[in-house]
Design a protein around this nucleic acid. Structure first.
Lengths: 340, 340
DNA sequence: CTGAAAGCGCTTACAG
DNA sequence: CTGAAAGCGCTTACAG
């Protein structure tokens, strides 16, 4: 028989209430009594049944997701996944609230964090803007005992409990490695299209991409980064200008706004189309893969990120262990041959 | 307030015991009474708290994994992951037993299935051998109400509740697509190394690979498949023979025994080494990726497969829904740049 | 500082 | 065919 609070109480010669006080580190237990209970826990190898505890507490975990009001496919998908999780909230004893903030706005994020703190959440997830004031607000939240998970885009500091997102440096390196091999041995120019160099995930992809290109594919020349601000129209204009002035062998689109990318590619004669690697599997990039306008799509699974965030927040709230491998967010690589 | 069995009992004017009988479809309830309870469930939108039910039942789910006693790295890893899950079994209310069977042996698998059925499991997972008698044994198990999940290698028939494994045709297609692009435009021979064409996953990878090669890379010629039986020694001998008689541009290793592959590759001068795609990230393939002997490794995450199997078996045992996207096993593509 | 009793939402004998 | 009561493993007022 697995030991229960009853076994512990009997073994330590105390009541259930006292066992509970010790197990939950509540005050008002004499040191000697506490020691007896702890000894019993140790001796019997007691491990508490979280489900039973939650039932007794009628516990539900109020979690808040702070999401940027960014209107691109990926963020819409992320939001959809959070709503999806919210719809399962009943079964999972969670309540999931979404708070919207303007994108790329550290001050707004800080304000949101402070406001959310008031509501006494059991955990908070946010798409971080990598700024010191945000790190500070997160640190305060954590000091008040609220676990915090960064989602998709991380903070530089270690001031969060967990990051649910991909390794963006590895993503950039992988893009370079694939593109370099697709262009094997050829010499020429490679275009790079980013959203904004102010966001950490874009910066990291860029960094990884350049590092591998420089060391492994010296015959390829990187053109200056185009900042498309994830805006399809702007992306299209920038690319068409670049296509007009350079022969492009390869292109790495490391941000969003890929509708503009596709439109620009379509203006090129087939023989002049570059090898292209883009990020995030959306309707647009999927269609582009299928017709061969894009060669590979690097993806992060928003559903996995959201479910993982919830599991981690729950575990942290309970002081329980996390299955690390389960929470690692993979870099998915899609060719037209392995689309889901 | 969420409705509970008490709300239902009150609404229907019956006792808790009767509510329970109806909810669990137990006999001994008059049709009219049953209807009243069902109406109450419907009216109040009741959904039962599985955790509370399991607590009341002191339920643990006895699951059995039937694993081939195949001594290769992947199967060892799969077994390790099952043991890992077994070590968390207490917390998850499961008990996990492993039954060993000889590899590639349908008759032994049938015998194991029948023997496991005797023990009254709440669910069974097996690495399937794709034979009619196995399908039949699985069908019988399911008819007795035991959910069955195939793991890694599937049955042709639909006689199982779920398959926890990758799409092997897509894997083969992806290998061809990558290899074809890595060799862009060049003409020459491509070698294919399989374990055994008797196993469904290897056959499917081969099929997908050939299909894409034929339609998209006609300048590459496929050499006849080498069957290495997942045995490193045999693999090495076969490959060295082939290297002696042909110039090889590319190589797809779709089975195991990759220690032999690496040894054979090492005998070639650097300039003569082919582009290589292999399966399953193991110590051997990881090291080969890192030194550049292998260009890409296609992988299935054994940990994910095992955890997914357990979630699905639990859900099936409870008649609950599965989060489909969560249970999809991805084809991981590893270059040396995105190793975990 | 400590304990007895009731309760979380469900199930299980047992009695009728 | 139906119900009252006890119990699963834990927590929570309340009383002392």
């Amino acid at each position: 028989m697995k030991p229960t609070v009853h076994s512990i109480a009997a073994h330590a010669g105390v009541s259930l209430a006292t066992v509970d006080r010790v197990l939950n580190a509540r005050p008002g237990v004499r040191a000697a009594t506490r020691a007896r209970v702890e000894a019993a826990v140790e001796a019997l190898g007691f491990v508490r049944d979280v489900a039973a505890a939650n039932l007794a507490k009628s516990r539900i975990y109020p979690f808040t997701f702070i999401l940027p009001a960014n209107d691109n496919s990926f963020m819409r998908e992320l939001r959809r996944q959070v709503l999806d999780a919210a719809s399962r909230a009943g079964v999972e004893r969670t309540r999931i609230d979404i708070v919207d903030v303007p994108a790329f706005d550290g001050a707004a994020l800080v304000a949101a964090l402070q406001q959310v703190a008031e509501t006494g959440p059991a955990g908070v997830a946010l798409v971080a803007v990598d700024a010191p004031e945000v790190a500070e607000a997160v640190a305060q939240l954590r000091q008040s005992g609220v676990p915090v998970v960064t989602l998709v885009s991380d903070l530089s500091s270690t001031e969060r409990d967990h990051f649910a997102g991909i390794d963006n440096i590895a993503a950039g390196r992988t893009a370079a490695s694939l593109l370099g091999r697709f262009l094997s041995g050829r010499s020429g120019s490679v275009a790079i299209l980013a959203g904004s160099m102010l966001v950490r995930d874009h910066r990291e992809r860029f960094e990884g991409f350049c590092a591998v290109m420089a060391t492994e594919f010296p015959s390829l020349t990187l053109l200056p980064v185009l900042e498309g601000l994830d805006d399809p129209l702007r992306v299209e204009v920038l690319l068409r200008e670049q296509f007009a002035s350079h022969d492009i062998l390869g292109l790495y689109s490391l941000g969003a706004g890929n509708r503009g990318l596709v439109r620009a590619l379509e203006t090129l004669e087939v023989s002049k189309r570059p090898s292209v690697i883009a990020h995030e599997l959306t309707q647009t990039t999927r269609a582009a893969l299928e017709v061969g306008l894009v060669d590979a799509v690097l993806n992060q699974d928003a559903g996995h990120e959201v479910r993982s965030t919830i599991r981690v927040l729950k575990a942290k709230a309970d002081g329980a262990a996390v299955v690390a491998a389960q929470e690692r967010i993979r870099l998915d690589i899609f060719l037209k041959d392995n689309l889901p």
